[in-house]
Design a protein around this nucleic acid. Structure first.
Lengths: 208, 208
DNA sequence: ATCTAACTAGTACATTTGTTCTAAAACTAA
DNA sequence: TTAGTTTTAGAACAAATGTACTAGTTAGAT
């Protein structure tokens, strides 16, 4: 395999295991069994690697989300999407666990992320209107509630992993499913009776 | 003022301004105009200072929350409580912005925080039952929805500041109020018509 | 007045980290 | 082959940091 991609992969693993703040180029080089001089030839510092990893994640996310908002939408499909996105975030969990710190240290990423959020915001808005058109979502409870809901999506979506490392005590393999449920329960109280029945139906099927 | 408390205060200011990860005992000492040897006499390292600051915050929080759950509860009082707690978290924002990292580095704090969360969980559960008894809160939409709601509280409550540093673009003095609104909007879709009218009434009064 | 403990300044040292440089090795194209 | 480019290893250096130590100073108790 290409040294460059191998560096990125090794870095990802180490970041996820030990945290992005304690891993240096020397650690990564040692883990790979190459000299750190060599590593610095490809990536002068860890921030460059982080940038690369972030780009990878964003690429995966946008293609995934983009695929969904074009197709037909059901609550079931929405639930699947959330699960898939969360799995991706989990694969790059080092980013999510130091989000604020990384974004402060690397301003490029902050700007890039804002762009990503804008696109995600549009996607979610699209989903809300579509659900409402299908009679599954209640009307806004007050002016601007949709915006508040979107913000909730972003906070829970970006920081469920941080919260999990502190509070979650269940089995690791159920973690994503658990927080998928927490995320989706943001929207459940906003469903109409029609939407709610559909939702409970999904739930029933899954537990079978 | 006591040197010890002055160290803690200076550290808090520097942590909040520049981030907990870039501030060392030498920085704090320099800012205070004392030798870092002296500072290390009082606090051998920054982690000890962080521990102290965390304890301060927890003390403030518990006394605040404890005061509320004993008294009579209205949605208005709940909104006030959320605002007050958020103000406290803002005063110690360095903690919230590196939450996962700090908790990983200082395991004592993680345990302490879990205890805090347990008590907060009870407090919130208490609030939910009380609101429901007063006919302001809808029944659970599905079995376990209250638990999901509590988790949402904790994620939004602990990480609104992190999200804000990345996404919030409004005026600094409106920040807390904005996220107070986002937090409270978690519960609004779960209100009964009675609760909703009361809620809108608060809103109307505030905007007057 | 004196003794003791608390406090403070400053020094010193080992590690770590980011960064740069040199030179050797491997590879590629003509 | 050969010339040039890319890749690699390793050394070297400055700056920062955690930690420990020494030696003064202060303040309060007896």
């Amino acid at each position: 395999m290409d040294t460059k991609t191998k560096i990125v992969q090794t870095a990802l693993a180490l970041f996820n295991e030990q945290g992005v703040d304690v891993i240096t180029v020397r650690h990564i080089a040692k883990e790979m069994g190459i000299s750190h001089g060599n590593l610095c030839y490809h990536f002068p510092n860890t921030d460059t690697i982080i940038r690369q990893l972030y780009d990878q994640l964003v690429e995966q996310l946008t293609s995934q989300i983009g695929g969904v908002i074009t197709g037909p939408l059901s609550l079931n499909r929405l639930a699947e999407l959330v699960g898939e996105v969360m799995q991706m975030l989990y694969d790059y969990r080092f980013l999510m666990l130091d989000f604020a710190g990384i974004m402060r240290r690397i301003p490029d990423l902050r700007d890039k992320h804002r762009a990503l959020v804008s696109s995600r915001k549009l996607a979610f808005q699209h989903i809300l209107t579509q659900l409402r058109a299908l009679g599954k979502l209640r009307e806004e409870l007050y002016d601007g509630h949709d915006d508040d809901l979107l913000e909730q999506f972003f906070i829970v979506g970006d920081f469920w992993l941080s919260s999990a490392t502190i509070l979650y005590e269940g089995a690791e393999e159920n973690k994503i499913k658990h927080y998928q449920q927490v995320f989706l329960s943001l929207i459940v109280p906003c469903l109409t009776n029609k939407g709610l029945t559909e939702w409970k139906d999904i739930d029933r099927k899954k537990t079978l």
